[in-house]
Design a protein around this nucleic acid. Structure first.
Lengths: 240, 240
DNA sequence: GAGACTATGGCACTCAGTACCCTCTGTAAA
DNA sequence: TTTACAGAGGGTACTGAGTGCCATAGTCTC
C-alpha cells in the first residue's frame, strides 16, 4: 500500500512535476482514498523520500553497537549506510536528485532529513567525546564535516548519472575528514609510503622540574602524512 | 509597514504560539489587509526571520572584498556577521530561539536559511581553493565546519539567555576549526601558556639519501596546545 | 455470533498561499 | 484643470495541503 502510493506519487512527479501534482492525482492513480495517503505519509514531500525513516533507524542501531575505539570511523561508516541506500537504486536516486534540485520545497525537506542524520552522528560523537569542555563542539563540527564530505561524494555520483561506484568518491571525501579529525584505522586509511616502514617514534624525555615542563621530542620522516604525525604526538603529549 | 507586520506577528507567536496564530490574526493586529502580508513576506515563516535576507547580502558583499590570503579566516569573519546580527538584539534573538526550538516548521525554515549562508561561504572557498581536485570538497567541508562551529557558539549564548558576550564562545569555536583547517592568526588564536614562552622549535636535519628521506625533529613542551604543534610541524614538513 | 481491533474511505473543515481586480493617492504632462 | 500614469495597498475568490471525525468492512478472539 505504502509502496503503491510512493510509486504512483513518484511517477506523477516525474511526469508533471512535484508542484503540479496534487494528492488527489496521486490517490487517483494509486486507486485508494485520499485519506489513506496521509496515513502513510505525513506530507506530500515524504512520498519522495520513503526510505529515510528506515535508514535513520538503521544508522541509530549501527551506532549503538559501534566500536568505541574510533568514534570518527564509526560515524563515517554510519554515513556509508545512507550511501548504500542511494546506491541500491541508482536510477531512482538519480531521478530523485534531479527532481529535488528543481523543487525548493523538496530541497528544504531534504535539509531537514540530512539534519536528522547529522544530529544522530553528533549525538554519538558527543557521548564519546564527552559533554564537557569542547566535547560537544567537536562532536558537532565533526558530524557536520562527515555529512558534508559524504554529501559531496554522493552528489558527485548522482550528477554523473549514477555511473560507477559511489563508494570511491565518498571514501575519498571521508578520508579527508579523518585525516584532520580522527585517527584513521589501517583498513580505511591509505598506506602512506615511508610511514609504516619507518614509523614516527615518540620519545618522552624528562626535562625541567615540574610535570608540565616535560619536553617531548618527536621524530618523523619528511613526507609522513599529517594525521600520522598528529596521532603519534597526541599519544605522547596526551590530548590537550 | 514591514516592520509593523513583523512585530505584530512576533508578538502573536509568543502569545499563542506559531501554529495557533493565523495570518488573519497578524494582519488584524497590524491593522492592514491580508494581501499586504504576503507582499512583504513570502510565507508566515519569513516574518520570524525578517533580517536574514539583509544579512545574507551583507555577507556576500563582505566576501567579495575579503582578503584573499586567508580564505578560512575570511569565511570565519563572514560568519561573525551573522553572530553580530543576533547579538544586536539579544532579547529578540533569545525569544526567537526558544520559539524556533518548539516549532518544527520554523526549525526547517531556519535550516534552509543556514544552508544559504553555508553555500555562500562554500562558494567563496571554492573560488579560492579551486574547483579541481579536492578544492570543491574542501570548500564544502570547511564551510560546514565553520557553520557548525558558529552555530555551536551561538546556541551556547542563546541558551544562556543572551547573557554576556557571544563573541567569546564563537571565537573559541571558530578557532578550533582554524586549528585543523587553516592557519590561525595571532589575533584569533588564544595564547597558550608556555607556548609563547618556550616556542616549539622545528629543526630539520638531513637524514637519508633522497629528499623524501629527510627527518624532522620537533621539540615542544608537554602541554603545548595541539594546534600550535601542528602549525609548527606543517611549517617544517610542508603540507602533506 | 458478539465484541474488539485494524485498515480504509468519505466528508467537512481550517488555513496558507495565489490570481485577479479594485481603490486611493501622488505626480507629471497637456 | 484635466488626463494619464504608476505604485501602494485592499478585497474576493480560488486551489490545495493537511486534520478531525465518523462510517464501513474485514479479521481475530472468545
Amino acid at each position: 500500500m505504502r509502496e503503491v502510493l510512493a510509486q504512483a506519487a513518484f511517477q506523477l512527479f516525474l511526469e508533471r512535476g512535484f508542484e503540479r501534482t496534487t494528492v488527489d492525482d496521486i490517490v487517483a492513480r494509486a486507486g485508494v482514498g485520499r485519506r489513506s495517503f496521509f496515513r502513510y505519509f505525513p506530507s506530500k514531500e515524504d512520498a519522495v523520500f520513503p526510505d529515510h525513516e528506515r535508514c535513520l533507524a538503521e544508522m541509530t542501531e549501527f551506532l549503538a553497537v559501534a566500536d568505541d575505539g574510533d568514534p570518527v570511523g564509526a560515524v563515517s561508516d554510519a554515513a556509508r549506510i545512507v550511501l548504500r541506500m542511494y546506491a541500491a537504486n541508482p536510477e531512482f536516486s538519480v531521478q530523485r536528485y534531479r527532481l529535488t534540485r528543481e523543487v525548493p520545497g523538496l530541497r528544504t525537506y531534504e535539509l531537514s532529513v540530512v539534519r536528522r542524520y547529522e544530529q544522530t552522528l553528533a549525538g554519538h560523537l558527543r557521548s564519546r567525546f564527552g559533554e564537557d569542555g569542547d566535547g560537544a563542539l567537536r562532536a558537532e563540527v565533526v558530524a557536520a564535516s562527515v555529512v558534508a564530505a559524504h554529501n559531496n561524494g554522493l552528489r558527485l555520483w548522482l550528477r554523473s548519472g549514477g555511473e560507477g561506484d559511489p563508494e570511491v568518491a565518498v571514501d575519498h571525501a571521508l578520508a579527508l575528514v579523518r585525516e584532520v579529525w580522527g585517527r584513521p584505522t589501517a583498513s580505511t586509511a591509505p598506506a602512506a609510503p615511508g610511514a609504516s616502514a619507518v614509523p614516527a617514534v615518540p620519545l618522552a624525555v624528562s626535562g625541567g622540574g615540574d610535570g608540565d615542563g616535560e619536553v617531548v621530542v618527536m621524530v618523523a620522516r619528511k613526507g609522513t602524512p599529517m594525521w600520522r604525525v598528529v596521532q603519534q604526538i597526541e599519544a605522547a603529549v596526551g590530548e590537550n
